[in-house]
Design a protein around this nucleic acid. Structure first.
Lengths: 104, 104
DNA sequence: TTGACATGCAACCATTTGGTTGCGTATTGT
DNA sequence: ACAATACGCAACCAAATGGTTGCATGTCAA
């Protein structure tokens, strides 16, 4: 879980996931297009995403195809974010009350 | 948004949020209890969470009270995670198909 | 009033991170 | 056959990160 959070922490990596979401199965070269970064840097980012199980790859000849795996993202939503949604209003009103009364 | 992702990337910070979720409005000293870390380190983590708008603080005498703000967490769920949930099955089956057939 | 308590602030440190350059290797199209 | 293509690997680098120690400051209680 920590690996997934760390992988998602970087904007370049999130945009790589976005691009795979837009078109799945892209090669390394395709994923490099338009990026202000060397191919080797992109490789490192993809390796981190792969280690976090967010992308899966298969070699096809001399090309490497990258596939998005949205399951860990979904898990973060279910196992982590969900528990904070419950008390959204509760927490807000509690803070407001505290802010308004100095005599707590 | 990037600030929130970065803030959530650290396990210590996530556990601070968990502790505030369990009991809101804790002081710095209370949040330090049981942590294998100096008070100053905890202060830095809380500052990062505050900069990401994940906690709000109010000074009360010589103590500083910390309140959880779950809104940015909720926003990540809505604006980022949600769009990846849609094609969960689609992506999986697509990958499976690729893995099974070498002749793509 | 004064000592203990809760916190703030700054300098410093090691490690991690995100990126580079350079070179090697396998595959492919002509 | 061979040059171009697509990628892998390793060394290196600057900056960010996560932590520390030391000291200063404001507040409360006896």
């Amino acid at each position: 879980m920590d690996e997934v959070f760390k992988a998602l922490a970087d904007g370049s990596r999130r945009s790589l996931l976005d691009r795979l979401h837009a078109r799945n199965g892209q090669t390394l070269g395709e994923l490099c297009d338009g990026l202000a970064m060397t191919r080797q840097a992109v490789t490192k980012h993809l390796a981190i995403l792969e280690a976090a199980n967010l992308v899966a790859t298969i070699k096809h000849g001399r090309e490497k195809l990258h596939y998005l795996n949205p399951v860990p993202i979904h898990q973060i939503g279910e196992r982590w974010i969900k528990k904070f949604e419950h008390d959204k209003l509760k927490a807000l009103s509690e803070l407001k009350r505290r802010l308004e009364s100095r005599d707590a």
